[in-house]
Amino acid sequence: MAVVRTESLRIAPAAAYRGTFAPLTAEPKSTGELPPGWEGIYFPFDAALADLRPDGSPADDGVLPVIDLPRRMYAGEDTVFHRPLAYDDVVEQRVQAGAVVEKEGRGGRLVFADIERNYLVAGELAISSVWHDVFLEAAKPGAVAKPPAPAPDAEWAWTESLTLDSRQLFRFSALTFNTHLVHYDRDWARGVEGLQDLLVHGPLVRMLLLDYAVRSQPGIKVERFSLQMQAPVFVDAEVRLVGRETDSGSEVLVVDAQSGVLARGLVTAR
């Protein structure tokens, strides 16, 4: 059964995102088109405080079943843009559970859970997206993270450096009402999750990579975008965005100082 919410796409959230992360993007204007991916700052999380897990992520949101694993992480997203959204549109969002699959991994039990989101305007489907989450067992003390896979040996047409600081993480958490402690509580991130520092939000990585692809190919009309998170992106750590055109659109990556792939996005153009 779908959870249905309705929201008018006000300019203020987009202006706040632009001023923090995308100053080269055109200023949002009434009835103007929303850049692809920016629907991600609307319909913020709304689980009651009592319905949060100890890590601050939703436990009972009326969509997924309650999963008895202590850690929850964003693993990626697949989105189809059927038609543009515009500022001031009244949008209906329908959210329901997709596939929920349990597996056994190197670190123990895993549950992969999909969340299906559809965005409609006047009954017409504008965007359909499948958000992928993974639930994990508690981090093992002293466990060493597997290094990310190296980037393909390719000529990248576009490249730029990026470092995200704690102010930006705070703002994205505020925009999306994301209370996951890994984004703002260093003691939790390091001591409980076993991370080296605060974690950059996966949905923010998605938006930044899609913005980068659109900025690097002026005039491109995005039909699909698929993101796979492959390793953590950390606060205050310089990374590189790299990209190149493909036969169907473009490929964009986040890579670390050793050229390990942290995230990979594939754009399909109309």
Score class of each variant (00 low, 15 high):
161 S>D: 14
185 D>H: 03
114 D>E: 15
167 R>S: 13
151 A>F: 04
61 D>P: 08
130 V>L: 08
97 A>R: 07
30 S>F: 09
133 D>I: 15
114 D>S: 13
180 H>V: 06
204 L>A: 00
75 A>H: 00
245 E>R: 14
102 E>D: 06
81 F>Q: 03
227 L>I: 02
1 M>I: 07
92 E>Y: 09
181 L>V: 05
83 R>H: 10
122 A>P: 05
128 S>W: 03
192 V>K: 13
21 F>G: 00
64 L>N: 08
19 G>V: 03
64 L>S: 10
186 R>G: 06
57 S>G: 15
121 V>K: 15
73 M>T: 06
53 R>F: 06
253 L>D: 01
118 N>F: 06
65 P>E: 12
34 L>F: 04
48 A>S: 08
195 L>E: 14
10 R>L: 14
230 Q>N: 12
258 Q>Y: 06
7 E>I: 12
182 V>Q: 11
135 F>D: 02
217 Q>V: 05
160 E>I: 00
78 D>W: 05
86 A>W: 05
50 A>H: 03
133 D>G: 11
83 R>W: 07
27 E>L: 13
44 P>C: 11
207 M>Y: 00
234 F>H: 01
46 D>N: 14
69 L>K: 02
74 Y>N: 02
203 P>C: 05
270 R>D: 05
187 D>P: 02
79 T>N: 00
181 L>R: 15
133 D>A: 13
20 T>H: 01
120 L>E: 08
209 L>G: 02
223 E>R: 04
203 P>D: 03
125 L>Q: 08
18 R>T: 01
196 Q>A: 15
204 L>G: 00
198 L>D: 02
174 A>M: 06
51 D>P: 01
16 A>K: 11
92 E>W: 08
31 T>Y: 15
258 Q>T: 11
4 V>L: 14
46 D>H: 14
140 K>C: 03
111 V>N: 10
114 D>R: 03
39 E>Q: 15
8 S>M: 15
44 P>L: 11
146 K>Y: 04
245 E>Y: 01
19 G>M: 05
58 P>V: 12
171 R>Y: 07
130 V>K: 14
93 Q>Y: 07
167 R>W: 09
94 R>P: 12
206 R>D: 00
203 P>I: 06
180 H>I: 03
178 N>E: 04
73 M>G: 08
197 D>E: 11
218 P>N: 09
132 H>T: 09
173 S>I: 07
77 E>H: 00
112 F>K: 03
22 A>N: 10
197 D>L: 06
30 S>D: 13
197 D>N: 08
9 L>H: 10
270 R>Y: 05
188 W>Y: 15
53 R>T: 08
66 V>H: 08
